[in-house]
Amino acid sequence: MTVELGTLISIGSALIAILSVIIAYLTYQSKKTNLTKSDTKENAEVKAGLDYIRKGVDDIRIDLKANEKQINHLSERVTRVEESSKQAHKRIDKISPEKG
């Protein structure tokens, strides 16, 4: 029984094609794994950045509330000083002789 050269070449070509498909699949899986790792790392960095921004916004809100309390307190004090000043002017006007 003799095997023809064309048959051997066909079988060899088929084996090379199968081997090429296997190598392509393994390469695809390797790149997919690396891409997943890269995406995970990027997502972690974005999440860390967002957490940092969220903390900064919370700190700004706390500072803003403290400033609002101080402004309200100063507003009340200014109102009291204006009332006191008005009363003092009335008393001074009663005491001082009228010009004229």
Rank of each mutant, 00 (worst) to 15 (best):
R61G: 04
R91E: 12
K65L: 13
I62H: 09
S75N: 14
D39I: 07
S85N: 13
I71Q: 03
G12M: 08
Y25R: 06
I22V: 10
D59C: 01
I11D: 06
L15P: 00
K90I: 11
S13V: 08
D39A: 11
I18N: 04
I16W: 07
L26I: 08
L74V: 07
I95E: 05
I23F: 00
D58M: 02
L26M: 07
S85M: 08
S96N: 11
D51V: 01
L19H: 10
K65M: 09
R54W: 10
G6N: 15
Q87S: 15
E76F: 13
V81S: 09
S10Y: 11
S30Q: 10
N34K: 05
L15M: 14
Q29K: 08
E82F: 00
I53C: 00
K55E: 10
S38Y: 06
K47C: 00
L50G: 01
K99C: 08
V3W: 04
I18F: 03
S38L: 06
E76Q: 14
R77T: 05
Y28K: 03
I11S: 11
A48L: 08
D59I: 03
S10G: 12
A14C: 09
L50A: 12
D58Y: 02
T2W: 06
I60L: 14
A48V: 02
V46K: 08
Q70P: 02
R54K: 15
E82M: 01
S84F: 06
Y28M: 01
S85R: 11
I60V: 14
Q70C: 03
R77V: 05
I16Q: 15
G12Y: 09
T79F: 09
S20G: 05
A14P: 00
E82T: 03
T27L: 04
L74R: 10
V46L: 08
I62G: 02
K37D: 11
V78D: 04
N34G: 07
K32H: 00
I95N: 00
I92A: 13
I92M: 06
V3C: 09
K65F: 12
K65V: 13
R61Y: 06
R91Y: 05
V46W: 02
K47A: 06
L5P: 01
K31T: 01
G6S: 15
Y25M: 04
I9F: 10
K55F: 08
A14I: 09
L64Q: 12
D58P: 02
T33H: 07
S96R: 15
E45P: 01
K31M: 06
I9Y: 09
